[in-house]
Amino acid sequence: MKLDDQDGNYNIPLSFRVGKVFKFGKQPINIFIQPQYTPSGFTSQASAAQYGLKLNCTFLLPGAEFGYSKEKAAKRCGRHCHGCRHCR
């Protein structure tokens, strides 16, 4: 979708997505296909494409932990001391 308040251009495609999570060995992968259609009244550009197709493959990381917290560090340390170099 594109809405530009500077020059008044817009493009609003209609789409839906169909996908499934598969396992490739032990690695989970999300695969989906997403067709889209932009009706003539939903775009400000005469040359805009009316049809589009997106195919996506995403590798999932189910055990990944992002960020840092003292609680997570203390669990990994096992001492729950909050004073060692792992828990600071």
Rank of each mutant, 00 (worst) to 15 (best):
A74W: 07
N9W: 10
I31F: 10
K26H: 07
G41Y: 03
Q45H: 04
R79T: 09
S15Q: 11
A74P: 09
A48N: 10
P62L: 09
E65M: 04
A46L: 04
I29R: 01
G19H: 00
G8V: 05
N56H: 08
N30W: 15
I31L: 10
A73P: 02
P35T: 11
Y10E: 13
K26L: 05
A48P: 00
L60S: 07
E71Q: 15
G52R: 08
G67N: 11
G83D: 09
G8S: 08
L55K: 01
L53G: 04
N56Y: 10
T58R: 15
Q27Y: 13
K54C: 01
R17D: 12
D5H: 10
C84A: 04
L3M: 03
L53D: 06
F22A: 04
A74H: 03
S15N: 13
L14T: 12
E71F: 02
F16H: 10
N56S: 12
H82G: 02
S40V: 05
G63M: 12
T38Q: 08
R17C: 02
I33N: 03
Y51R: 08
S40W: 03
T43N: 06
P13I: 02
N30E: 12
G63Y: 14
A64S: 05
F66L: 15
A46M: 02
K75Y: 12
Q6D: 13
R79N: 14
V21D: 03
N11V: 00
K75R: 15
Y68A: 04
F66W: 15
Q27K: 13
D7E: 09
S44P: 07
S47W: 05
N9K: 11
M1D: 15
G8T: 00
L14C: 10
T38M: 11
G83E: 12
F16I: 08
F22R: 06
Q50G: 05
S44K: 09
L61P: 01
S47R: 04
K75S: 14
Q6H: 12
P39Q: 03
Q50M: 05
Y37T: 06
S15R: 12
I31H: 00
T43Q: 06
G78V: 01
L55T: 12
S69D: 13
Q34C: 01
S15P: 00
G41A: 01
Q45K: 13
K23S: 06
S15M: 08
I33P: 00
Y10L: 07
I29L: 15
G83Q: 12
G78E: 02
F42A: 08
Y10W: 14
C77P: 03
K2M: 04
Q36R: 00
A74R: 09
Y68I: 05
R17K: 15
N11L: 04
T58M: 15
C81D: 04
K23R: 12
Y51K: 11
Q34V: 01
H82W: 01
F22M: 06
F66K: 14
I31Y: 01
L61F: 15
D7Y: 05
L55Y: 09
F59Q: 01
Q34I: 02
